[in-house]
């Protein structure tokens, strides 16, 4: 690749003459030809595997399809089917509950772990690996492993509770504990990545800030509150946004571990979407649900980014 490809665009200033403008455009295109060539492959892949399916999904939301005859336009009927389904409201409630719990547990714990790891003077790399290890396990393996942990009979947790003479829990089999049990699994499985990102952010905080705070008599909590959190605020906000978007699409844990039960207490939006598409063979309603989720997450992301920018 020639170095000119990476050269910044040249700006001579002042309004160019039309002939100049064409010439400059031509030169710019030629300068960046190699880059466009590389970009082209990515664009084709995105168009084929991402943008076209999105557009197709939007169209499917207003159609009834059997993949044999031409799609039939049905207006808002798929959305009406969805709104009439009692599970629609339940799935939203469950998904928001999962997201809320995941924010409380899954957001706070990795940050706390990162702060503690950052303070370690010995064996830091070892603990970093230990925290990151679960991320390397496939999600399905994690879910199956935790199913055994949660087994109300010979499972790990109830065996431990029995050992200490504590009352046993039904974990996944109880509507009161099923969702939080799933959140714990999701947090355990994914906290390694978040912890590493927080650690990287903590490493960028200048040591002088802590020294100055200590000289001013700040205790640990005050240093955390007035130095650490403000200095990592941007990373925290970005991670929170990513976590909300990701947790609202929770699927693997309820699909493998509870199937949405007991009594619909873990039916999430993506699980409902999966059922419509692949169990009931109703791709129109499934697409309508995915469109609603897409709009809500899109609006939420845009709002949050705007807030972040304003505050910055």
């Amino acid at each position: 690749m020639s170095t000119t490809v990476l050269a910044p665009p040249r700006d001579t200033g002042g309004p160019p003459a039309p002939a100049d403008r064409v010439g400059r455009l031509r030169r710019k295109v030629l300068d960046n030809l190699t880059a466009y060539g590389f970009l082209c492959a990515a664009l084709v892949v995105f168009a084929l595997f991402s943008w076209y399916p999105i557009v197709r999904g939007v169209l499917l939301s207003f159609q009834q399809v059997n993949f044999i005859t031409d799609p039939e336009w049905v207006g808002w009927q798929n959305f009406q089917t969805l709104f009439a389904d009692p599970l629609f409201g339940i799935a939203w409630r469950n998904t928001l509950l999962f997201t809320g719990l995941a924010l409380v547990i899954g957001f706070a714990i990795p940050f706390a772990v990162a702060v503690v790891l950052n303070e370690l003077r010995h064996a830091k790399p070892y603990f970093r690996i230990v925290v990151y290890l679960p991320v390397m396990l496939p999600p399905v393996v994690v879910a199956i492993l935790w199913k055994w942990f949660y087994d109300p009979g010979p499972g790990l947790f109830n065996s431990a509770l029995r050992l200490f003479g504590l009352p046993e829990l039904s974990w996944l089999d109880d509507t009161g504990t099923s969702m939080i049990s799933l959140v714990i699994v999701a947090t355990w499985a994914s906290m390694g990545s978040a912890t590493l990102i927080y650690l990287a952010a903590l490493a960028t905080i200048p040591g002088e800030l802590y020294e100055a705070a200590e000289l001013d008599g700040a205790n640990v909590w005050q240093r955390l509150r007035h130095v650490t959190i403000p200095q990592t605020r941007f990373v925290l906000l970005v991670m929170m946004l990513m976590q909300i978007v990701a947790t609202m699409q929770v699927f693997t844990e309820p699909y493998i571990m509870t199937g949405g039960g007991p009594e619909d207490s873990t039916v999430t939006l993506l699980l409902l979407l999966y059922r419509y598409a692949f169990v009931y063979n109703d791709f129109g309603t499934a697409s309508a649900l995915s469109l609603l989720l897409f709009v809500v997450l899109g609006a939420f992301s845009a709002l949050y980014l705007r807030l972040t920018r304003t505050r910055s």
Partner: peptide
């Protein structure tokens, strides 16, 4: 969450 990325990849 990294599983979120996998889920989105699956959906995609």
């Amino acid at each position: 969450m990294s599983t979120g990325i996998q889920r989105r990849t699956l959906a995609l």
